[in-house]
Amino acid sequence: MELTLSASGQLLAVQLGVARRVPIGGRSVLTGMNKLPVQGKVPVLPLGLTGDEQADLSIHGGLEKAVYAYPAEHYPFWQAARRAEGLAEIDDSLPFGSFGENLTLQGVLENSLWAGDVLKFPDCELMVRIPREPCYKFNAAMGFARASKLMAQSGFCGMYLSVLTPGSLCAGDGFEVVHGRRSVSIAQLFAAKMSKHLR
């Protein structure tokens, strides 16, 4: 089956982080969600971006979940959700990387990306794999207890990518989406996984 180009987008920001302990629910929890932006080219290897760490490799990381990407288009939704929870009075900022994503993308959403699609960057290729599932660490990062449920309801989950062709990435890179088999979208996979939580 011949692959075809479907869309294009832009990599707005690249974030890396090291796993560290933070207080969550009265206990010290190891998390790699705290990602900070980096400038310049970042090497991309089969297990992810050089310099990035995950805390729980049974949930994040590995060959199929080497890189986590999140659509920039969802940021206004979460800023509004935080304002509704009264958090804007404390801190109205929500910088790229706030969802623990390595890549903040513009131009693609969960319902436009399918498992097996390839994001073709100038110097590497990443394959779309599965959606991210929210957990209690996401609630802590967002600052309110309903955040995971809101992600499940909205479908704004982002997607895990595997490294098809190693190379490098840089904020500002453009990319093209190359169609894979197109049998199931990230939105459909996420909805199926979340259905039990929304009953």
Rank of each mutant, 00 (worst) to 15 (best):
I130W: 07
A7H: 15
A152S: 06
P37S: 09
L161D: 02
W114Y: 14
R132N: 06
L63T: 13
R181T: 05
S112R: 11
D91N: 15
L57D: 10
P76D: 10
V18A: 15
A66C: 10
W114L: 11
F175K: 02
G143W: 04
V128H: 02
L150K: 10
A88P: 00
K196N: 09
V178N: 00
G32T: 08
P166D: 10
P23S: 09
L126S: 04
H197K: 14
R27T: 14
F121P: 00
S6D: 06
Y70H: 05
Q15Y: 02
G143H: 07
P71C: 10
D173L: 09
A66P: 08
M1N: 05
A66F: 10
C124P: 02
C170F: 03
P37A: 08
L161M: 01
R82P: 04
V18I: 13
P76V: 11
F96G: 11
K41D: 13
M194E: 14
H74K: 09
S168N: 05
G116V: 10
S6E: 13
I24T: 05
Q10K: 14
T50C: 10
P43V: 08
V184C: 04
L11M: 12
V184W: 00
V44K: 04
L11R: 03
G48Y: 07
M159W: 13
V178M: 03
A7Q: 14
S154R: 12
H74N: 07
R27A: 13
A19S: 15
K41G: 03
